[in-house]
């Protein structure tokens, strides 16, 4: 069972920089980084008109289902998925076993270029997550929950 996912400002900036660069280098429409459980972590590119919350949940469901198929076929995992659309295509890759890198792209780029750029960005993201998990595991890691009281939680649910 994976521990809770915690994102601090420093790592968020690093991840955001990787996503922004990937968006540019792959000539993609948009880049989304999604936790395997369906939470959006970062995005880059043209996301203003996208329902990123729904996209994240459905992508995670899709990747989970594909992982289930892999297990039945005794494959460790299918690391990548590609859906070809008329205007927008989607490439999804599982990174470091716990986050999904999603690239939305059109005819301005190619699947080959997207795959190439994704591979490098995936390695960088994996390293950032490794460092972040080590940081979270430290006993001195800051936590918002040390500030929150039971009363704060009660207040949230007052009618």
């Amino acid at each position: 069972m994976n521990p809770d996912l915690v994102m601090y400002e420093e790592e968020f900036q690093q991840i955001q920089a990787v996503c922004t660069r990937l968006h540019r280098d792959a000539s993609a429409k948009a880049v989304l980084l999604i936790d395997k459980n369906g939470q959006l972590i970062a995005d880059a590119g043209d996301v203003a008109n996208l329902d990123t919350v729904s996209l994240s949940s459905l992508t995670a469901g899709n990747v989970a289902a594909t992982g289930g198929i892999a297990k039945l076929l005794k494959e460790k995992e299918f690391t990548g998925q590609y859906h070809e659309g008329e205007e927008t295509s989607v490439h999804m890759t599982l990174v470091a076993q716990r986050v999904i890198l999603v690239i939305l792209f059109d005819e301005r780029t190619s699947l080959g270029l997207v795959r190439l750029r994704v591979r490098k960005a995936g390695e960088e993201i994996a390293k950032i997550f490794e460092a972040m998990l080590a940081k979270v595991a430290e006993p001195s890691a800051p936590s918002i929950f040390s500030e929150i009281t039971d009363e704060d939680i009660d207040n949230l649910f007052k009618d």
Binding site: D4, M7, E9, S143
Partner: peptide, 12 residues
């Protein structure tokens, strides 16, 4: 598994 995002100040 919760997702605590200090950058966006969100508890998911």
């Amino acid at each position: 598994m919760s997702f605590i995002n200090y950058s966006a100040r969100e508890i998911n």
